[in-house]
Simulated scan of single mutants.
Amino acid sequence: MSAVIEAKRSMADLGNKAQEVLKDASLTNAEKKTRLDAYQADLKGFSDTIALHEQAARLIGGAEAPAEAEVKAAPKGETRSFAKQVIESGAYKSMLSGAHGATVEVKAAATIDEGIIPAFSGGAGLAGQLVAPQLLPGIVPLKFQKLTVADLLAQGTTSSSSISYVIESAFQDLTGVVLEKGAIPQLDLTLARRQDNVGKIANIAKPTVEMFQDAEQFKAYLENRMVFGIQRKEEDQLLNGTGTAPQVTGILQRSGLATAVVTAAGLTAVKAMEGIFNQITALRAVSFVEPDAIVIHPTDWQTIRLGKDSQGQYYGGGPF
Score class of each variant (00 low, 15 high):
Met1Arg: 07
Arg9Val: 01
Arg9Glu: 05
Ser10Glu: 10
Lys17Asn: 08
Gln19Ile: 08
Glu20Lys: 15
Val21Trp: 07
Lys23Cys: 00
Lys23Tyr: 10
Lys33Ser: 12
Arg35Gly: 02
Arg35Trp: 03
Tyr39Cys: 05
Ala41Asp: 09
Phe46Ser: 02
Ile50Leu: 14
Ala51Trp: 00
Gln55Tyr: 05
Leu59Thr: 07
Ala67Ile: 07
Glu68Thr: 13
Ala69Phe: 13
Glu70Asp: 10
Lys72Ser: 11
Lys76Gln: 12
Ser81Leu: 06
Ser81His: 03
Lys84Thr: 03
Val86Phe: 03
Glu88Phe: 09
Ala91Asp: 02
Ser97Arg: 12
Gly101His: 03
Ala102His: 04
Thr103Trp: 09
Asp113Trp: 13
Glu114Ser: 15
Gly115Glu: 02
Ile116Tyr: 09
Ser121Ile: 01
Ala124Ser: 15
Gln129Asp: 06
Ala132His: 03
Leu135Ala: 06
Leu136Lys: 15
Leu136Ile: 09
Pro137Ser: 04
Pro137Thr: 02
Ile139Met: 03
Val140Thr: 14
Lys146Thr: 06
Asp151Glu: 13
Leu153Gln: 04
Leu153Gly: 08
Gln155Thr: 14
Gly156Phe: 15
Gly156Trp: 13
Ser162Thr: 15
Ser162Glu: 14
Phe171Tyr: 12
Leu174Asn: 11
Lys181Pro: 00
Ile184Trp: 06
Ile184Leu: 15
Pro185Thr: 01
Thr190Tyr: 12
Ala192Lys: 01
Gln195Asn: 11
Asp196Gln: 07
Val198His: 05
Gly199Pro: 02
Gly199Phe: 01
Ala205Gly: 06
Val209Met: 06
Met211Val: 08
Met211Tyr: 09
Ala215Gln: 11
Gln217Val: 02
Gly229Thr: 08
Ile230Glu: 02
Ile230Cys: 04
Glu234Ile: 06
Gly241Gln: 00
Gly241Glu: 00
Gly243Gln: 04
Gln247Lys: 05
Gln247Glu: 05
Leu252Arg: 13
Ser255Tyr: 10
Ser255Asp: 12
Gly256Leu: 06
Thr259Ser: 15
Ala260Asn: 09
Leu267Arg: 13
Leu267Gln: 09
Met273His: 01
Gly275Trp: 04
Gly275Leu: 11
Asn278Ser: 11
Gln279Asn: 11
Ile280Asn: 03
Ile280Pro: 00
Arg284Thr: 06
Ala285Gln: 15
Val286Leu: 14
Val289Lys: 13
Ile296His: 01
Asp300Trp: 12
Trp301Leu: 14
Trp301Glu: 00
Asp309Ile: 08
Gly312Val: 02
Gln313Tyr: 05
Tyr314Trp: 01
Gly318Leu: 01
